[in-house]
């Protein structure tokens, strides 16, 4: 029983981190209908940056205080946002202008993610260890609370504010939104910014309790799981992404705490199996909307 509880707890923590990252995938897909493969590299960039800044701050007057962490977090968010803007502006926007096909957009995203991943690899191929700011218990509460707060804020933002409504309009019908006087490019860039900021927050919370990581943190360690979470929950749906994140996180942690009966080596089969089954029965995800194809 204790094992199960422990697994649930770790699953909730991992799940809320996946949820934050899944929100980014989900919002971007919802608005530009493109799987942003570079999102996983935003995660890596955020992690690297937070690491290098905390390492230098630890030696300064800030030391081991919460301020070092906060500064690192803010810096990571800012850089991730800038990287996202640059990516959007120079790789994705020209494609949208040309009205290119979806596969083109996807390949470009893969290309961008390859570039970032290659650069990260060249910078630091060895394993790094983040400074241990809080213990495992605290980081659990931080993860849960941050996710809940951010989900509430985002929902409010999307449902109630003017920009949020514009965002939904663009995702519903780009042409019509444009005709209503909405600046599409701004809205899309903003979505990318929010997504990458969430990725940065997610990865910093993930690392916070002294986690070890490599340049593959985005592409392998965390990997496709947030994306799978976004799809399971229903792409474009905010609560869906969070539910998906928790589901994947809990499955992963449960297989790990029951690793002594051999569950952990089947984690990919279990997660992707569930994923495929859900999609087959509910092609648009748990909370997604069905869209009918029209002539």
């Amino acid at each position: 029983m204790n094992t199960l509880l422990e697994g649930l707890k770790q699953g909730l923590e991992l799940g809320s981190i996946f949820a934050l990252m899944a929100l980014g995938y989900s919002m971007v897909y919802g608005i530009v209908k493109m799987i942003n493969f570079a999102h996983s590299e935003f995660i890596t960039i955020g992690g690297f940056l937070a690491y290098f800044i905390t390492e230098s701050l630890l030696k300064s007057t800030f030391g081991n205080s919460i301020w070092s962490l906060l500064i690192a977090l803010v810096a990571a968010i800012i850089v991730c946002v800038i990287v996202a803007i640059i990516t959007e502006r120079f790789a994705y926007r020209p494609l949208r202008k040309k009205g290119s096909s979806r596969i083109t957009a996807l390949i470009t995203a893969i290309g961008v993610s390859y570039i970032f991943s290659g650069i990260m690899n060249a910078i630091e191929p060895e394993q790094l260890q983040f400074h241990k700011f809080v213990d495992k218990n605290t980081s659990f509460y931080i993860a849960i609370i941050t996710t809940a707060v951010l989900l509430a804020l985002l929902t409010f933002f999307v449902k109630k504010t003017k920009i949020g409504i514009a965002m939904r309009a663009v995702s519903e019908n780009e042409q019509a939104a444009k005709l209503m006087g909405i600046n599409n490019n701004f809205i899309i860039a903003l979505t990318f910014m929010i997504g990458s900021a969430l990725a940065a927050i997610g990865v910093v919370i993930y690392l916070l309790d002294g986690e070890c990581f490599t340049f593959e943190i985005g592409s392998v360690t965390i990997g496709l799981y947030p994306f799978v979470a976004a799809v399971i929950g229903g792409i474009g749906s905010l609560p869906g992404a969070v539910i998906g994140g928790f589901l994947i996180g809990i499955i992963r942690a449960i297989t790990q705490v029951y690793s002594n009966i051999g569950l952990s080596s089947w984690v990919d089969t279990i997660i992707y199996g569930i994923f495929v089954i859900i999609l087959l029965f509910k092609p648009s995800g748990l909370l997604g909307k069905d869209v009918r194809e029209k002539v």
């Binding site: 790789a91 083109t104 470009t108 893969i110 290309g111 961008v112 991943s117 290659g118 690899n121």
Partner: peptide, 15 residues
């Protein structure tokens, strides 16, 4: 760093 090269080629070709 084949990944950087692939990435750059891909993005340029797509653009």
């Amino acid at each position: 760093n084949p990944k950087i090269i692939y990435g750059i080629i891909l993005v340029l070709i797509m653009l």
